[in-house]
Amino acid sequence: MTIGWILLSLMIALCALGVVLARSPISSAISLLIGFVGVAILYLALKAEFVAAVQILVYAGGILVLYLFGIMLTDNEALRLTRQTHLQAWPVFVLILVLFLAVGHKLYHSDYTPQQPDSLLMVTDQSQVQALQDRLAQEAAAARHATNPQRVARVLYGDYLYPFEAASVLLLVAVLGAVFLAKKEV
């Protein structure tokens, strides 16, 4: 099983690299497609069948087709010519690596002194913690009996109802912005 995970993760990572590094946009799009399918398999393995189905339908089926349309309608030669090789890319990469290692080192060796819990606890009342844990356990128990879409629905329209509604404004803004910027007349 672990081998399977590693292979799958490697495949997804390679596809992601392929998207960025491929010379022709079509190859990029195909790598992206394989990557999407890989992620869907990952979801399946995590027993999130509904999310896997949505992943295939929306990403592999919908968004990728849009990408392909976009590629068809743009000038491929122009895209190929603008491919850039930056001389400064390697030094920057080394710099980033050094910074990353430095930060990582700092993280491992910093001196954490846990502060007094009760001065920090947001719920000063211990019974509230208990109530929270009880509720979570209850929900977990209920979730075991629900089907996959039901569980997704419960999270989406229960816990995340507000961000879900706010996301509708987000999508509205995205559509409006695209239309506004593409319009001819101000």
């Binding site: 961000p163 706010a166 404004v169 987000l170 803004v173 912005g177």
Partner: peptide
């Protein structure tokens, strides 16, 4: 979600 709503509007 809030961050993106703000950011997209401000890009435009």
């Amino acid at each position: 979600v809030g961050l993106e709503t703000m950011a997209l509007s401000v890009y435009v």
